[in-house]
């Protein structure tokens, strides 16, 4: 069976992907949020496994992670919550987290669990490319998991090519030099970067993340790229409105 991520990437149109922190606002909101997002037409979901020290994240995701851990979220609990998810949800699901919890769970055991649940890919920002290739690639492949790598405006062309070669789904294009949630809109630098990457004719489509928060930024990001990921803005929406108005948020991004 082809991975759901690859299938989704074949479809026409721009993809909207949403990140949320599992266990936030309440411990058992995970399944509800996923089901609702799919119902509202979201194309792909990143399920954040909370970590105590999320280095690449700004204050919004930090706070949601701390709250989720405080609510009692653990790796095992997330896997339990997701156990039946494929009975109701068919869009691609990606687990995004930091490497240490995965390492403690056991990389093989973690990937095996993801496979059993029907997770399609992983994003582990602090699992670097060279370590992945030399130590873990076989395990990911054995369980049919796509590993998603990041690039940033500072990533050299040479390294982008290496990352493209190593990827078999999409490339996560970090919109600007920043942690999550910290930039105001997109300026010329971002536009130039988006265009530069577009002209590289990479084998993997790109999905832009970091700093997408409304219809304008979504549109700007997806002018060249295949899709965009929204994280902090969605978490903020959950913080303010709870989990009952997810549709309003999604509609505000894309109708």
């Amino acid at each position: 069976m082809t991975n759901r991520i690859n299938q989704k990437l074949q479809e026409n149109g721009k993809l909207l992907s949403i990140y949320f922190t599992a266990g936030y606002p309440s411990l058992n909101d995970t399944v509800h949020i996923i089901q609702d997002l799919e119902k509202c037409g979201v194309d792909m979901i990143e399920i954040g496994l909370p970590f105590s020290d999320p280095l690449a994240d700004g204050p919004t995701i930090q706070k949601s992670s701390t709250a989720a851990l405080g609510n009692g979220m653990t790796t095992e609990r997330l896997f339990e919550q997701l156990a039946g998810i494929r009975e109701t949800v068919s869009i691609p699901l990606i687990v995004m987290g930091y490497f240490n919890p995965m390492l403690q769970y056991g990389v093989d055991a973690f990937c095996k669990k993801c496979h059993e649940i029907g997770i399609d890919g992983l994003i582990m920002p602090d699992l670097p490319l060279n370590v992945y290739r030399s130590e873990y690639e076989e395990i990911f492949k054995k369980y049919g998991l796509i590993n998603v790598f990041l690039i940033t405006p500072q990533t050299s062309e040479e390294r982008i090519r290496i990352i493209d070669e190593a990827s078999d789904g999409f490339i996560y294009m970090v919109s600007s030099a920043s942690v999550t949630g910290s930039k105001e809109g997109f300026g010329n630098t971002q536009t130039e970067y988006f265009e530069r990457i577009a002209t590289m004719n990479l084998k993997n489509p790109q999905i832009v993340g970091f700093g997408i928060k409304d219809a304008d930024t979504f549109e700007a990001a997806t002018k060249n790229a295949k899709g965009a990921i929204i994280g902090s803005a969605f978490i903020k929406h959950l913080t303010t409105n709870g989990i009952s108005q997810i549709e309003a948020f999604v509609k505000s991004i894309r109708n």
Binding site: F51, T74, Y98, N100, P101, L103, Q104, D126
Partner: peptide
């Protein structure tokens, strides 16, 4: 501590069974 990753380094580190840094 147990082996784990903190601040970009694989080293002994105080953490929960779940890999959260204590």
């Amino acid at each position: 501590g147990k082996i784990g990753i903190i601040h970009g380094c694989k080293t002994l580190l105080m953490q929960t069974d779940d890999g959260q840094i204590t």
